[in-house]
Design a protein around this nucleic acid. Structure first.
Lengths: 189, 189
DNA sequence: CGAGATCTTATGACTAGGTACTAAGAGTAG
DNA sequence: CTACTCTTAGTACCTAGTCATAAGATCTCG
């Protein structure tokens, strides 16, 4: 990498560290063909902390996320109330990653995912799977809105091992989504 | 904390570090009322790395996740062929994060998300939203399976601004999911 | 051209949180 | 009593820095 002016170097330094916080001053010095001291002065001016501090903050973030990121993969929405085989309620806050960038409207599958997760959760069975669903999006959900989904078990057909769940989702008491789920359950109830 | 036998201490040490990897040997020594050297011998025996290495691995894990969790939020499935307002095909590989741990069956909303994403994508409009959907899961999809979703536009109703899309998803040519989507489109076609 | 300002590099003292190694004392079991 | 485990202590060394001071290099303006 060629030598550049201070300003250029500092800009590059900032972005370099941003997308690889694990780089040492020594490596940076080599990359920018300056001395280690220059790198340290730069970091001082830009108030970029040292390697170990940077790593620590990344690690800490991960630790905070641990609680928050698992539910994202697992169950969508936070279940706040549940009465097995009867009803359940969950909330889901629409964040940036859930919306179309263009218009800040939530992608339908996230709203569906919340309802589907809730329908699975309300069933008192180790193995519950969605067999069919009939859904309607009543109005679009936008960034920062809080969706409250309410599930209600309408019918349990033990002979064929099917449970029917109705899920209605609201934003500020306004219906945004409604769905009827036909769920498969293994056997026990 | 009272003094304990070596074995007890080492067990506690392991679990203590596991749920707080940010603790120093000095703090541990105080916690267990032994010398710092004892703690270090313990870590050596248990092959628990030093604080800075522990923090680093936590941070690295977080960094790996960053790549893996982003595609999950955006468009689900990789679109491999598209003919706007006609048809489209996408593939989706079922990974660990998509399945129920208990039985390795994919959560329904991921399969739905792929179909929904495809239904949105096939429409030649900046703003396409799902209005209604009628879906059926024909058989369960398992870990490591590759789902191929095929979307076909069946009808475009320009007066009311609705487009009907049929999506069928297959694993090894076997139908696993089918859905009819009624999509809202802004105006232009 | 030269003086001052800015930038860069070097050097030394010190830090946290260790590793690796040697040595010595305490307690226990055979 | 001896052998062994366990614990503690101390030393040298390491990385990846901070902080402060000093001196050389470049640039800029009058």
């Amino acid at each position: 990498m060629m030598r550049r002016t201070k300003k250029e170097r500092q800009q590059l330094l900032t972005s370099t560290i941003k997308d690889n916080p694990f780089i040492t001053d020594e490596d940076l010095a080599e990359k920018f063909q300056v001395s280690v001291q220059t790198i340290r002065l730069d970091r001082l001016e830009l108030s970029i902390p040292e390697l170990r501090e940077r790593i620590k903050t990344v690690a800490e973030k991960r630790f905070e996320d641990e609680v928050r990121s698992l539910p994202l993969e697992e169950v969508i929405g936070e279940i706040i109330d549940i009465d097995l085989d009867q009803s359940a309620i969950s909330i889901f806050d629409v964040k940036e990653e859930h919306v179309f960038k263009r218009n800040n409207i939530a992608r339908g599958h996230h709203v569906f995912a919340q309802a589907n997760s809730l329908a699975v959760a309300v069933i008192n069975d180790e193995l519950a799977l969605t067999a069919k669903a009939n859904i309607q999006f009543k109005r679009s959900v936008k960034l920062e809105e809080r969706v409250i989904a309410k599930a209600r078990v309408t019918n349990i057909d033990e002979r064929v091992g099917r449970t029917f769940v109705e899920v209605n989702s609201f934003v500020n008491n306004e219906l945004v989504f409604t769905g009827e789920f036909e769920m498969y359950r293994s056997k026990n109830s």
